[in-house]
């Protein structure tokens, strides 16, 4: 019953409709990459068509197992993960995951792409560019859990810009570049990406963190360090979205510790056009559906007629 209501009521709620790089979203709620698989685990739980879209599991050119386990640690109001981009590789995603997704999700999906070289990013994006199901390419230059790739592109404005240029050259789809917060000056990186032709910016990826087990006196996670996410990082993420909004004209997808409809609105006030929800999906698999359902009532509470009116409203 709740699924049906979600489909009937919230998805046609015009005042939550936003446009992200020219593609309309019924609402700005987007499960973040790495917390939503390729969608169908959640499609067993509720009708995922109530979402704006979702960003699928970070995909690389080759299949990857990722890091050894343990990959997960807990911390106050959050968690640390070092999965290390486990994915079946872009060919299997196109051949197997996307057809399966088509059965349960009927909106453009956000394709999250990672790589270890500029050429690899471009090759993976070129393949996904041909997929009609893919709406946006979200290019992750910010994974903290792999060596010799990922975050090393996102900590240098020139390297990040090179990835953007290489990807833009092989696709006509909007390219969002997903940035790491593990930098001194997030604004400089964001501006470099905008100048290189990025259509939008996603931020933030996880913060580099770690835990040590008092019993073994060794790091909890096999990779030693991992990406810190969850409600604890929300103020950091919000601050970075706010700073980047002041410096760029392209839309921002805000994320980092978002866990409820109020957080979505706060992110939009800071400057986000759409908002991704990550770690919260792992502890409450229904959280994104619930946020979509609760958004209109929370908008009413704060006298917001239309979400488009509040994007960057705090500036």
């Amino acid at each position: 019953m709740r699924n049906a209501e979600c489909g009937m009521r919230n998805c046609i709620e015009q005042r939550t409709v936003v446009s992200l790089c020219g593609i309309q979203l019924d609402n700005p709620v987007i499960p973040a990459s790495g917390t939503f698989g390729y969608g169908y685990e959640f499609a067993e739980l509720y009708d995922i068509n109530c979402l704006g879209t979702f960003s699928f599991k970070g995909t690389t050119r080759e299949p990857r197992f990722g890091n050894p386990t343990p990959r997960i640690a807990e911390c106050a109001s959050g968690m640390i993960n070092a999965v290390g981009l486990q994915n079946p590789g872009v060919n299997a995603v196109i051949a197997e995951e996307l057809p399966k997704l088509k059965q349960c999700f009927h909106k453009p999906v956000m394709a999250n792409v990672s790589g270890f070289s500029v050429e690899e990013y471009a090759a993976t994006c070129a393949k996904l560019d041909k997929e009609p199901q893919v709406g946006w390419l979200e290019v992750n230059v910010s994974c903290p859990n792999v060596h010799g790739g990922g975050m090393s592109f996102g900590t240098d404005p020139k390297a990040a810009a090179e990835v953007v240029k290489a990807v833009k050259a092989v696709t006509t789809k909007p390219v969002l570049i997903k940035l790491t917060p593990n930098v001194t000056d997030i604004v400089a990186i964001a501006k470099a990406c905008e100048e290189a032709g990025a259509d939008g910016i996603s931020l933030i990826n996880t913060l580099l963190g770690m835990r040590i087990d008092l019993k073994t006196k060794r790091p909890v996670i096999a990779n030693k360090m991992g990406g810190f996410s969850g409600p604890a990082v929300f103020p950091v993420a919000l601050r970075m979205v706010y700073q980047v909004y002041e410096a760029v004209k392209i839309p921002i997808v805000g994320m980092g510790g978002v866990a409820c409809a109020e957080d979505v609105i706060e992110m939009m006030l800071a400057g986000a056009t759409a908002v991704e929800i990550g770690a919260a999906n792992l502890t409450d698999p229904f959280v994104c559906r619930d946020i979509v359902e609760q958004l209109p009532a929370v908008m009413d509470k704060y006298h917001i007629d239309n979400l488009n009116d509040i994007i960057g409203g705090a500036h």
């Binding site: 790495g34 698989g37 990959r71 997960i72 993960n81 999906n281 792992l282 502890t283």
Partner: peptide
């Protein structure tokens, strides 16, 4: 047994290698 993130297949936190794949 493994340390888990979600417990329902979403996060890949508890993957292992087997003869028949991950």
């Amino acid at each position: 047994e493994e340390r888990m993130g979600c417990g329902f297949g979403a996060c890949m936190g508890c993957s292992c290698k087997t003869i028949t794949g991950f």
